[in-house]
Design a protein around this nucleic acid. Structure first.
Lengths: 171, 171
DNA sequence: AAGTATACGACTCCTGGAGTCCGACTTACA
DNA sequence: TGTAAGTCGGACTCCAGGAGTCGTATACTT
């Protein structure tokens, strides 16, 4: 079915990815007083200057602390178990909405179309809640154990229980 | 926090929106043998030609049937209660992945970064499952009753129960 | 045969993500 | 106290891809 582009759509921005990666790296190295954007960038092979800008944003909202000058860099300001993926993504990319025409108050230009988007707004909140339940400490633990895999479970009121991770067929 | 753009990020494409809207409209008018793309487009004030292309895609995967010629148009081919939002979005936009570097097999160019993305892949599957549990019949019912609101529930294994729709604070 | 609709490729427009560059400022250390 | 190494942050370029249009071929109804 993919026409030419291989897959994308509804994806997280790379910046958000990089931000989460950097925070994971910081959480994995609590002994260091400060890690430079360059160091982290090299560890993951991502552009250093871009990562620097991302970390600056995370510093602005108080997730990390910036240390200027020689041997400077960034360090975690908050407990990794208290920082959710949601706030990281929010800090970097701003509020995320699955629908295209929502303003902050949920306003819409089309009256008719809004009725369709109401259920999608629920999906949006569902996604938000899932992201709020994942913290960067979980990212660190993942790779050794599988804690996150069992962490999230979806149940419908119809009794259908779907463990996140088992797709029932991709079409 | 939003720099200049008001909000977006991680949103559904307009095409997918339009597709869901059109299907809802068709589901609301089961008496009509066929509704033209132009009619539907005018009802929602969306570009007719664009909607036509979307409906063509939906016709290709067998969700709707196209009737050429005079008084032609499109009609639902499947039971609205059997068509999930997931397959609609999939048909229009292709597979959706929250992470940026996933191929169909889940391949990645960076070895280190992949460890971070594993938990996000679970989030991705969670979203997919939520969308699979929403059908266009739900879109029709929404607006009169609130069935969808209570339809989706998220539970974490920690016992935390979060009803989709009550955000615990947007930051 | 005429009229109306779909079918679909090719095309343009333009937003916004991704990344770079550079100047200013800050700090550690010799 | 000067300098190297770092952050800070605006301005900039590049370009993929979403959004929408156009034109033509085709198919079907009356």
């Amino acid at each position: 079915m993919p026409p030419s582009a291989d897959f994308p759509m509804l994806r997280l921005t790379k910046k958000a990815d990089y931000g989460l990666m950097a925070l994971k790296y910081l959480a994995e190295h609590p002994e260091a007083t400060a890690l430079s954007a360059k160091d982290i960038a090299e560890a993951y092979h991502i552009p250093a200057q871009l990562l620097a800008k991302i970390l600056q944003r995370l510093a602005k909202v108080g997730i990390v602390k910036s240390h200027a000058g020689m041997n400077g860099g960034y360090s975690l300001l908050k407990d990794p178990r208290r920082v959710s993926a949601f706030e990281v993504i929010f800090a970097i990319d701003g509020p995320l909405f699955i629908t295209s025409c929502f303003t902050h108050e949920g306003n819409c230009d089309l009256t008719n179309s809004c009725t369709i988007k109401e259920p999608l707004a629920r999906v949006n909140e569902t996604i938000s809640n899932v992201l709020k339940n994942i913290h960067i400490s979980d990212l660190v633990e993942e790779g050794r154990s599988r804690t996150v895999r069992e962490l999230i479970t979806i149940r419908t009121t119809s009794g259908q229980k779907v463990l996140a991770g088992e797709a029932t067929g991709t079409n």
